[in-house]
Write a protein that binds this DNA or RNA. Sequence first.
DNA 1: ACAAATACATACCAATGGGTATGTTTTGAT
DNA 2: ATCAAAACATACCCATTGGTATGTATTTGT
Lengths: 195, 195
Amino acid sequence: MYAKSTATIASILSAAQTLFLDKNYADVTMTEIADAAGVTKGALYHHFPSKESLYLEMMHADLKEKQAIFKSAAESAGSCRERMKRVVESFLQLPPQKRELIKLVRRDINIFRNPTRERLVRAYQSALPEQVEKIVRDGIRDGELADADPRLLAWMHVALVEVMITDYAQKIFSDRAAMADYVVDLFFSGAGNTQ
Amino acid sequence: MYAKSTATIASILSAAQTLFLDKNYADVTMTEIADAAGVTKGALYHHFPSKESLYLEMMHADLKEKQAIFKSAAESAGSCRERMKRVVESFLQLPPQKRELIKLVRRDINIFRNPTRERLVRAYQSALPEQVEKIVRDGIRDGELADADPRLLAWMHVALVEVMITDYAQKIFSDRAAMADYVVDLFFSGAGNTQ
DNA sequence: ACAAATACATACCAATGGGTATGTTTTGAT
DNA sequence: ATCAAAACATACCCATTGGTATGTATTTGT
């Protein structure tokens, strides 16, 4: 019964991802997405009932992918410090476009058009912190980290990681491994002079 | 020649601030702003030539105010650590609405509608980091901080500070001073267990 | 082969919203 | 008092855009 449409859907989702990253939600038009995907609005609305659902499906697919990546990195073996570095690297090693999709979510923080959108935004935003929190809990339990609120500490850590996706940080470091080292060292030891 | 209109302008700017914080730029309508300010679109367009200019003027006024506050805190006397705490507190002590205006700018990161907007966004975004960077430079010079890129370190520090405006952090800490302490301690000493 | 479902294209609609044109009222200088 | 400028209000315009209605082409099960 089904003529294959997977290629069209993929191209629509890809075009939508690029455009939504480039402009605000309201500034991206359905015609624009259709054009970029090489189809017409008719085809677009055949596959997606509305602009909102297209946005949600696109983000949801990306979220699932990232959750899996972060989870496997967080559940790897080794010391708290090693696992943390692995998680940071798993984030920094994402292709730039995928990595920067977090910015798209950040735009929506505290602006919830509907419950579905709110759930998605919250889940997306906490995908990385959730995994880091698990490592932090283990670190505190094993005495590698000082006793403190694990969730807050995890968010602090992720805040440091996200500085690394700024242009300035990109210019300073030669590779992802150096970035991950820097972040994890700063998180564990701080910037103070302890000589 | 001038009938006094300062009150109207102030009420328009205030209404605009609230609404732009609550929704995306495109989702805020000029009629809405006018209604919230208790005037009509006619009065609105009498004082501001366009929606864009209203947005820019509102943000620019806020930026100038914050730059002054952060600057005076950063140039206070004392050790690197003391000054840093003072800057953090000057940020955290802002009224909630003013403090959260940074979120509004964050939405626009990497979305530059025009050169004026880009300049504003960049200036707004770096208002706090700029002052922190000065302190960091002094800290490195005086041996209180380990040698590292001062600008990057400043952004890292600010990233930590901004975690404090999340709902979760608000619930944990009792007062602003405790928040500032936590951030500065974490920045200087890290989260690792060094016993 | 052929009918039905799917995949896509074309043409159109209705509402939204930024901006304008044109008023009327109020202010302030002389 | 008067008159021009400023401060508002009212009514309207029109370009944009999400969504629909209705087509045609292509695939697929039988």
